[in-house]
Amino acid sequence: MSTLIVIDQAPYGFWTGREALDMAFSLAAFDQPAAMLFTGAGVNWLRKGQRPDGVGQKSAEKNLSAAPLFGIEALIADEHACQQYGLTESTMLPGVELVSNIRDVLGDHKHVVFAG
């Protein structure tokens, strides 16, 4: 049973999502199983082609692309939220699993932690 890190806030506007990503990578660094769920405005983390130079931040997309490499078990996205924000498979990072009911995902994990 792994830890589920939930990001429900958009990237760049707040630091909380990035702190959650650090938490997920820290779990991975100590060999603790972890997965990430993106819901609400948090699904905007997953959009391809982010160029944050103009706002002086690191790319959420590029940071997140290291997740599989570090052993994060799954990147899961709320299908409804993706629709709301116009995200489709072709505009999203590869390898994201879509779910129609996040309640099932929350039930699958022993620990669930929200960002912020």
Binding site: D22, S26, D31, K58, N63, S65, G71
Partner: peptide, 19 residues
């Protein structure tokens, strides 16, 4: 360049080099 971060731990550094 690809990820805009360092490997976050020694273990993951070793893993990334191995990959």
């Amino acid at each position: 360049n690809k990820h805009e971060m360092s490997p976050p731990s020694n273990r993951l550094f070793v893993k990334a080099v191995k990959d």
